[in-house]
Write a protein that binds this DNA or RNA. Sequence first.
DNA 1: ATGCCTGACCAAAGCGCTTTAAATTTTTAT
DNA 2: ATAAAAATTTAAAGCGCTTTGGTCAGGCAT
Lengths: 342, 342
Amino acid sequence: MNLKQLSNQLGLSQTTVSRALNDYPEVNEKTRERVKTAARRHNYRPNARATGLATGRAKTIGHIIPVNSTEVFNPIFGEFIAGASQAYSKHGYELLLNMVSENTEESVYREIASKGSVDGVIVHAPRVNDSRIELLRELNLPFVIHGRDNSNESDYSWIDINNRRAFYQATKLLIDLGHTNIALINGRETLNFAWRRRKGYLKALTDAGIQPDDNLLFTGDLTEANGYHAAAKALGTDNTPSAFLVSSYMGALGVRRAIQDANLQMGKDISVIIHDDDLSYFHNSGDIPQFTATRSSVKEAGYLAADMLLSLIDNPHLAPQTRLLEAHLIIGASTGPNRIKQ
Amino acid sequence: MNLKQLSNQLGLSQTTVSRALNDYPEVNEKTRERVKTAARRHNYRPNARATGLATGRAKTIGHIIPVNSTEVFNPIFGEFIAGASQAYSKHGYELLLNMVSENTEESVYREIASKGSVDGVIVHAPRVNDSRIELLRELNLPFVIHGRDNSNESDYSWIDINNRRAFYQATKLLIDLGHTNIALINGRETLNFAWRRRKGYLKALTDAGIQPDDNLLFTGDLTEANGYHAAAKALGTDNTPSAFLVSSYMGALGVRRAIQDANLQMGKDISVIIHDDDLSYFHNSGDIPQFTATRSSVKEAGYLAADMLLSLIDNPHLAPQTRLLEAHLIIGASTGPNRIKQ
DNA sequence: ATGCCTGACCAAAGCGCTTTAAATTTTTAT
DNA sequence: ATAAAAATTTAAAGCGCTTTGGTCAGGCAT
């Protein structure tokens, strides 16, 4: 059933039927009712491609997710997208998912922009000095970044958490508990969030007069396996850390395993603080959460990012929007005073 | 830049330019070259909505993911989608992601079908007696199910793993190791895969003359927390299981934690076999993987499902396709002979 | 030269909507 | 009753492509 057939059925012009369905004011209320019930009865819905062509809007947002061959799909992306998805369905938008390897990235962005299959994009996992921001501006495609670049924070739209402060606070807590050998198990530090987290960590150390130790810094994709290997390596040296700061729940699962394998007890022998994105499949909750954490819901961030992008699209002359979310410190069972004598 | 502008520039008709770009034979080779370089130079790409309207195909596949309010995004879906995504980009298709709560499901399917924004859909997480199969057939929308219904396996297209056999084998292995009290920590058994896995588990028990114990059966979303609670509960009874069969890596992480909390050792005091979807963020690998597992790559399944759907779309008169993948048994560190005397 | 292919190109219709500009009907004011 | 205004409806253009059904040279055989 298409518009023509529906309007023939009703003995009305396509114009009137279209207007009735789209709630234009110049349609008689009775006519509108008649049209709407007929549409419902025939299960009519306007063809998305035709509507898109006529209006010039795709009513679709693209999410561009960088992948590399080994780490395929970070669960954190999934949760973010789930949040965004709620905003889209509320506003009648669709979500186009684009997984792209870093080497073909630029051409994919260009293609997306010129094909016009989306009205805007959400950029995931910004890097340190990310060239995509310049590219997107050139392409004139509305966008919101989940994260930030390291410079120029005001001339594009982003939503981010205060990574630096979160990791400063987490590190300070560990220092206050008497820890001085604190390992950081971080994401790839070409990624902006990881770079910021390290800065917070280092600041807290130097503020406390502690000399950072490069051997306690680990970076890499935050998988269970990488968390395990990093922690196992750290625990195997003679300068064993008494505490770990871990950038994700997934990595922390590996850290927990390494601690166990070393016959140590998390929360007693070794303290751990994680950053907790509040993933639904990995809830760190209960009366006493298993992990002490800096927590911020990435699903919420997804919702807010989507909402921001939609308002940017509706309102093209709006200035860039930015939003900085604070992570909250949650005390769980994985931290305690330092019991390893130095 | 659109087709009209490009053809004006070239002094050619839109017809010829369009044909040149789409590799139709009736264009002079020199002209084609001239057109293609001009298109490249101007970064021209046909508008997807217009092409879609003209051809009647969206060149887009929808993935419809059921969500409930608590368990938002199962990482397994992400990995499946990543696999599917590879097939799409190879064939010039896009991926539309649709997260839908179960109560609005039917109307979402109807909407998708009538709006024409996709050429086909992949259905995730089929239930026992899933009404969506009937619905999709009625809607005349090509589809492939990741999983199966419990009856009528031949009149629709699906790709699935042999859940029953995998869990039969895993259970049998535990029995052969001397375990008789084997707990099953399964997904929601309204879902088809969980129902099949339980059947395999029960069959192995009864084949060995072991009376199944309802107190050892747990179902629920396979989160870390649910795995933990189920295992902790099982370990707290007087009829303690000596082995666990766990339907996902994520759940198994919780089980591992519960075992540890009970001061038991996995692989010594308690055996665990998991189903391993080979998730990139949770690799169960190494010389001796931490978990004994039935393994099947869900990313691979995603690729195959997408490929199947695309061939179904290209070839509407093809009979339904089905594909049953076998899971492979991997011996890891989490199993050993039963040491709990009965 | 004539007719017939063949190769290369083009004009215009059509995909299913929205929207502009105009027409028609109804209501209101005189 | 009539003109003007308001309310309602419509025809047709246009969004940017693909595709049908041509046209128009040039080459070939006759």
